[in-house]
Amino acid sequence: MQLLNRSRRFHSSDILPLFVLGTLGIQGLLLVMTLLNTARINHLAHRPVPSLVQLVDGHSISTEAVDPNQRTPEVIQQFVKTALGLMFTWNGQGQTTEPAAASAPADPGVPVNHGRITTASWQASFALKEDFRTAFLDQVAAITPPGIFSGSAQSVLTIETISTPKELQAGYWQVDMVANLLIFDPTHPQGLAVTFNKSLFVQAVEPAEDPLPETSTPLQKAVYRLRENGLEITEIRDLDIQQLAPNPS
Rank of each mutant, 00 (worst) to 15 (best):
V194C: 00
H188I: 05
E160T: 12
G230L: 08
R116D: 02
V32D: 04
G85R: 01
E98M: 06
T217Q: 03
P73Q: 14
P246R: 07
I41L: 10
L30P: 00
E232V: 08
L86S: 14
D240K: 06
T134Q: 11
Q95Y: 01
G25Y: 04
L84R: 05
D67A: 09
E160L: 12
I76F: 06
T82Q: 01
E74M: 04
A65H: 01
E167I: 13
L168V: 10
F196N: 14
K166W: 09
I143C: 01
V49K: 08
V178N: 10
V175F: 00
S125W: 14
P48E: 04
L36N: 07
G230D: 07
I148T: 07
T158D: 09
P165A: 02
A204H: 05
I41C: 15
N197R: 09
L16I: 12
S51V: 11
T23V: 12
I241G: 13
A135S: 15
E98S: 10
L31Q: 11
P50T: 12
R47C: 09
I15Y: 07
I159F: 12
Q242T: 07
L3V: 13
G115W: 05
T63Y: 02
Q93A: 08
I26L: 15
G85F: 07
T215I: 11
V194E: 07
S7C: 08
T89V: 03
Y224D: 09
Q70I: 08
D138T: 15
T82H: 01
R227M: 08
L36M: 08
T97V: 10
Q27N: 07
Q139S: 07
F184N: 02
T82V: 02
S51N: 12
A104H: 13
R9H: 12
V112N: 02
D131P: 15
P189H: 06
P211V: 10
Q242M: 13
L52H: 10
I159P: 00
W122V: 02
L16W: 06
A222Q: 05
I76P: 06
S199K: 15
E228D: 13
A142H: 06
L4D: 15
P68A: 15
L55R: 10
N69A: 14
T63P: 00
A222C: 03
A208R: 00
T217W: 06
T158P: 02
S51K: 15
S60M: 14
D14K: 12
H46P: 04
H114L: 04
P189D: 14
V178S: 11
F201G: 11
L84G: 03
D57K: 01
